[in-house]
Simulated scan of single mutants.
Amino acid sequence: MSSRLPALTDLPGDIDGLTRIETSDRATTTPIILDMLRSVYPHDQVFGKYCTVEEYIDAPPAEVYRYLSDTRSLEEWTYSLRGFTPVDEPGLWLAYDRLGDATEIYTRTVANPESMTVDYHCAWDQGKHLWMVYLMRVVDARIVLNKPGSVVLWTNCHHPFYDENPYPETAPPQRTPWVGDFWDMFAAGHMLEMQNLKAICEYRSAHGLPLTPAWMGE
């Protein structure tokens, strides 16, 4: 059956990396897909450019979203971010990442209630260029798992600044590690923090407590 849509009519049919049923039938494509499957995957192949973790949380999605959208929730469910205080610039928060000793970390939260996305724009040492972006989305589990609760997706992209500090002049002189030194551990570390998020939300939900404490709503 031919399509009435002008799909890719403006492009040549032999583009490298393009695999579509019109040019590669199922018999041809199946071996390609099977070759992409591995029983063991190199860590860098899975987490070298992007780091994504996900988890089911037995708590209402709107409440999980509301909790995440408050920057101060990071004080509770992250492993090492502590002491959030607002700065003069509206929406910008200063805290300390104890993973980097006494490292200052700046955070601005960009949230969308319609899509339930929560993006944390962060940076060590300075608050002018928030290049560390933590992308999170809350999904209603009834849609994707056919049961109540939430699915939380979390992705980080390997920004080139992880490889080299772009603002060395703002770093405290006594600090040895750079945030990018921990990239290989991001997946495990983020899953640990996701389990923190799950434990906190599920405990409060099961005990009839608001997921977002009153002190966050102040």
Results as ranks from 00 to 15, higher is better:
Met1Asn: 05
Leu5Pro: 00
Leu5Gln: 09
Pro6Leu: 09
Leu8Trp: 14
Leu8Gly: 02
Pro12Glu: 10
Pro12Tyr: 11
Ile15Pro: 02
Leu18Trp: 11
Arg20His: 13
Arg20Cys: 07
Ile21Phe: 12
Glu22Ile: 01
Thr23Gly: 03
Ser24Gly: 00
Asp25Tyr: 03
Ala27Pro: 00
Ala27Glu: 14
Thr28Gln: 15
Thr29Ser: 07
Thr29Asn: 04
Thr30Tyr: 14
Ile32Phe: 15
Ile33Met: 10
Leu34Met: 12
Leu37Ile: 08
Ser39Val: 10
Ser39Gly: 10
Ser39Gln: 14
Val40Gln: 15
Val40Asn: 11
Pro42Cys: 07
Pro42Glu: 09
Val46Tyr: 07
Lys49Val: 01
Tyr50Glu: 13
Thr52Ser: 10
Val53Lys: 06
Glu55Ile: 13
Asp58Met: 06
Pro60Ile: 05
Pro61Ser: 13
Ala62Cys: 04
Arg66Met: 08
Arg66Leu: 11
Thr71Glu: 06
Thr71Val: 15
Glu75Val: 03
Trp77Leu: 06
Val87Ser: 04
Val87Arg: 10
Asp88Tyr: 10
Pro90Ala: 11
Gly91Phe: 04
Trp93Asn: 01
Leu94Tyr: 11
Ala95Asn: 06
Ala95Gly: 07
Asp97Val: 01
Asp97Ser: 12
Leu99Asn: 05
Gly100Pro: 00
Ala102Met: 11
Val110Leu: 08
Asn112Thr: 03
Glu114Trp: 06
Met116Lys: 09
Met116Gly: 02
Val118Pro: 00
Ala123Asn: 10
Gln126Asp: 06
Gln126Val: 03
Gly127Leu: 10
Leu130Asp: 04
Trp131Tyr: 13
Trp131Glu: 01
Met132Glu: 05
Met136Gln: 12
Met136Trp: 10
Arg137Trp: 04
Val139His: 11
Ala141His: 07
Arg142Pro: 01
Arg142Thr: 12
Leu145Met: 15
Leu145Trp: 13
Lys147Gly: 07
Pro148Leu: 14
Gly149Asp: 10
Val151Cys: 06
His158Gly: 00
Phe161Asn: 12
Tyr162Gln: 03
Asn165Trp: 07
Pro166Asn: 02
Glu169Trp: 12
Thr170Glu: 14
Ala171Tyr: 06
Pro172His: 15
Pro173Val: 09
Pro173Leu: 14
Thr176Pro: 00
Phe182Val: 01
Phe186Met: 05
Ala188Tyr: 04
Leu197Tyr: 04
Ile200Thr: 03
Tyr203Val: 00
Ala206Arg: 13
Pro210Tyr: 11
Leu211Glu: 02
Thr212Glu: 05
Ala214Lys: 12
